[in-house]
Simulated scan of single mutants.
Amino acid sequence: MMVFLVILVVSGALIVGALWGAYGSLSEWVQGNLLAIAGGALMLSVALQMLEPAVNHSGLLATITFTLLGAAVFTGTDYLIDEKMQSGGGGGLLAAVTLDGVPENLALGVSLIGGNVMQVAALAGSILLSNLPEAAGGAKQMKEDGNSNKKIIMIWIGAAVLLSVAAIAGNQLLRDVPKSTLSLIDCFAAGAVIASLATEIFPDAFKKGNHWAGISTAIGLILALGLNQLGG
C-alpha cells in the first residue's frame, strides 16, 4: 500500500503542476522562482543522494563515466527538441522531467523495498519538490506556444504514467540487483539533472524570477537538506 501511495503522490505532482500551469494564474515571477526552488533541491539531491553513494559503491571512474553519459544524452535530446523540432521551453522541461525522472523513480522504487520511512520521505520529497514546479512551468510555456490545455494535460499525464511505471519496475524488478549497478542508474540520472539545471531550469528561473531566483535556489537547497537529514 505504501508503495502505491508514495508513487501516486510523487507522480501526481506532475499532473497537479500541469493543471496549475495550464489553467491557473501563474505569473512569470512566481514561475521563475518555483523553478529556482526546484533547481536548488535538485542540486543537493545530485550531490548527496546520487553521486556521493555512487563513488562508494561503484568507484570514481564508473561514476564519472555514467554521469557524463547522462549529461550527454539529455543535452543531445534537449538540442533536438529546441533546435531541430522547434519546440519551446516547455518541451525542454518535459525532457528534463522524463530523462532524469525515470532513473530517479527507479531508485525511489528500490528505496521502498527496505521500508525505511525516513529515507523514502527524503527521496520522495526531493523528487516532489522538483516535479511540481517543473510541470507547472512546462505546461505554462506549452500553453504560450499555442498548445491546447487538453493536449498539455494529456502529455503530462503520460509523463506521470511513465514515471510511475519506472518506480514500480524499480520496486519489483531490481530487488536483487547489486548496489554498484543501481548506483550507475543514479549516476546517469545525476548527469541528466546537471545538464537540465544548466540548460533549462536556472536560465529560465533567472529570466523570469530575476535576482530573486538566487534566494529561491537557496531555499530549495535548504528544504532538500532538511529532507535529507530526515533520511539520514
Results as ranks from 00 to 15, higher is better:
Ser216Met: 11
Leu132Asn: 01
Asp78Pro: 04
Ala36Thr: 07
Leu129Ala: 08
Trp29Val: 13
Val30Gln: 05
Gln86Arg: 15
Met118Tyr: 13
Val16Arg: 03
Val193Thr: 13
Ala135His: 00
Gly92Ala: 06
Val16His: 01
Asn210Pro: 04
Gly70Ser: 12
Ala166Cys: 15
Leu80Tyr: 11
Ile113Ala: 11
Leu128Tyr: 01
Leu26Tyr: 03
Ala205Ile: 09
Leu42Arg: 00
Asn56Ala: 11
Asn228Ala: 11
Lys140Leu: 13
Ile113Val: 15
Leu221Asn: 00
Ile157Tyr: 08
Pro53Gly: 08
Ala18Gln: 07
Ile153Phe: 06
Gly21Ala: 09
Ala96Ser: 14
Leu14Asn: 14
Leu184Tyr: 11
Glu200Met: 13
Gly232Val: 10
Gly39Asp: 08
Gly90Leu: 08
Leu34Tyr: 02
Phe4His: 14
Val120Ile: 14
Met1Cys: 10
Val102Arg: 02
Met118Phe: 11
Gly32Gln: 04
Glu52Ser: 13
Gly12Phe: 00
Leu230Lys: 12
Ile219Cys: 11
Gly231Arg: 07
Leu123Thr: 10
Val9Glu: 06
Leu163Tyr: 03
Ala95Asn: 07
Asn56Glu: 07
Ala107Arg: 06
Thr67Ile: 07
Pro103Ile: 09
Asp78Trp: 00
Leu162Asp: 11
Ala189Ile: 06
Gly24His: 04
Ser180Ile: 13
Gly170Arg: 05
Asn210Ile: 04
Ser216Val: 01
Gln229Met: 13
Val55Thr: 10
Ile219Gly: 05
Ile153Val: 15
Val97Asp: 03
Leu230Glu: 02
Ala13Cys: 15
Ile127Arg: 02
Gly146Phe: 15
Asn210Gln: 14
Gln49Asp: 11
Lys179Ala: 13
Leu132Lys: 02
Val120Met: 03
Leu44Gln: 11
Gly70Leu: 07
Gly88Phe: 12
Ile15Gly: 02
Thr181Asp: 08
Gly138Ser: 09
Ile7Cys: 05
Val6Phe: 09
Glu200Asn: 14
Gly21Cys: 05
Ala198Asn: 05
Thr63His: 02
Ser27Gly: 03
Gly21His: 03
Gly21Gln: 04
Ala22Lys: 10
